[in-house]
Amino acid sequence: MLTGLKLNTIGKTIKHLRGFIKDRVKSDAIYLSHQEIATIYQTDLSDHPHLIEYRDLFVLACLTGLRFSDFSTLKPEDLQRDMLYKKQEKSDHWVIIPLREEAKHIFTRQFKERIPALTNPEFNRHIKTIGKLAALNRSIKFSYKKGNKSIEVIKPKYDWITSHTARRSFCTNEFLAGTPVELIMKISGHKRTKDFYKYIRISPEEAANKIKELWIKRDGMRLVQEGGGVVLISNTNNQ
């Protein structure tokens, strides 16, 4: 069966990931896995009711990839046919975002009538508190250069969470799930593949595992000429 993939599609992805592993020394942000996002969403906030709308808005952002400037200004009319139509403030470009059932539920239940007036610092402060309540306590170490010195900072994961974590989480989780990069970029608004690969946040181990998956896909296929170009055909195809 034809995959429709060009010869260099998988090769380019592997090249980007190899570069990621080689050059990944400094990290300036984290991402949350789907499980961690679910943990946050399911955290009992009955003793902290003022945090519920912050939590729900953060989860909505994790499931849509919107920046703070965009998810904090959503309006009821942005939802059309189970998709969000949003003009990005930073790039001035329109994006169309399909909604998972959870995201649609949050938007229609919690925020269909009103997005609370928020400031980014206020939002970040509350999201850290929510992450702490969700017990996202694993120590995360980031290192960076300052002059000739190598500086290391170790904090619990919840203390690294910001509004932008939601956007990075969306892009990274979709990438790890195998969603084509070009499709993720249509939603995130990234214009260059190079910028996208700098943006996602995965560990070198995750990048290595992704390369293994791509090798399996690549090695399980063979190349044929088709329509003036080269495409990949599964080796299990008897044609």
Rank of each mutant, 00 (worst) to 15 (best):
I233W: 11
C171W: 00
I30V: 15
L84A: 15
Q80N: 13
V25Y: 11
K210H: 09
T129W: 11
L176K: 13
I37Q: 09
P76R: 14
P98A: 08
S139L: 14
T165L: 02
T165V: 05
T13L: 12
D44H: 07
Y54D: 12
A177I: 02
F107Y: 09
E101R: 14
C62N: 11
L57Q: 05
T13P: 00
K217T: 09
R192I: 04
L118D: 04
P76A: 13
K186C: 00
T3H: 09
I10S: 08
I184Q: 04
T73L: 01
Q110F: 10
F68Q: 00
E36Q: 03
G19N: 14
L223P: 02
R218C: 04
E152N: 13
W215M: 09
N237L: 12
P180R: 07
R114D: 13
F123K: 00
D219P: 01
A29P: 01
L176H: 06
C62V: 10
S169C: 08
H48A: 13
E226V: 10
T108V: 07
I154V: 15
L5K: 15
L63I: 11
E152G: 00
K26V: 08
L176R: 06
E53F: 07
I184C: 01
T172N: 04
S46F: 12
N173I: 03
Q239R: 13
I115V: 14
V153W: 00
I200L: 09
H93Y: 14
Q35L: 06
T172C: 07
V95K: 08
Q42R: 15
L118N: 03
D78W: 07
V25H: 14
T73S: 12
Q239N: 13
G178K: 01
I130V: 08
S143L: 02
G65H: 05
T236V: 13
K198E: 15
R167N: 02
L136S: 00
E205C: 02
P98Y: 12
V224R: 07
Q225M: 05
P76T: 11
Y158D: 10
G65V: 00
T108E: 11
D159K: 10
S169V: 05
L232K: 09
V181P: 00
D23E: 07
N124V: 02
E53W: 02
P49N: 03
I21N: 01
I96N: 12
S46W: 04
I97V: 15
L45G: 00
L57I: 07
E36C: 06
E122I: 08
F170M: 04
Y199A: 14
K132A: 15
L133Q: 03
L51S: 11
I40N: 10
D44C: 03
I115K: 10
T172L: 04
C62S: 06
T43F: 01
L232F: 12
L7V: 06
K75H: 10
L66D: 06
L118I: 05
V231F: 07
K186T: 12
E102V: 13
K146Q: 13
R125W: 02
A29V: 06
P204C: 03
K112P: 00
L118A: 05
R55N: 10
Y199C: 01
A166R: 02
V224L: 03
L32Y: 08
T73A: 11
W160K: 04
R201W: 10
K145E: 15
Q35P: 00
S163M: 02
F123R: 01
R125Y: 11
R192S: 07
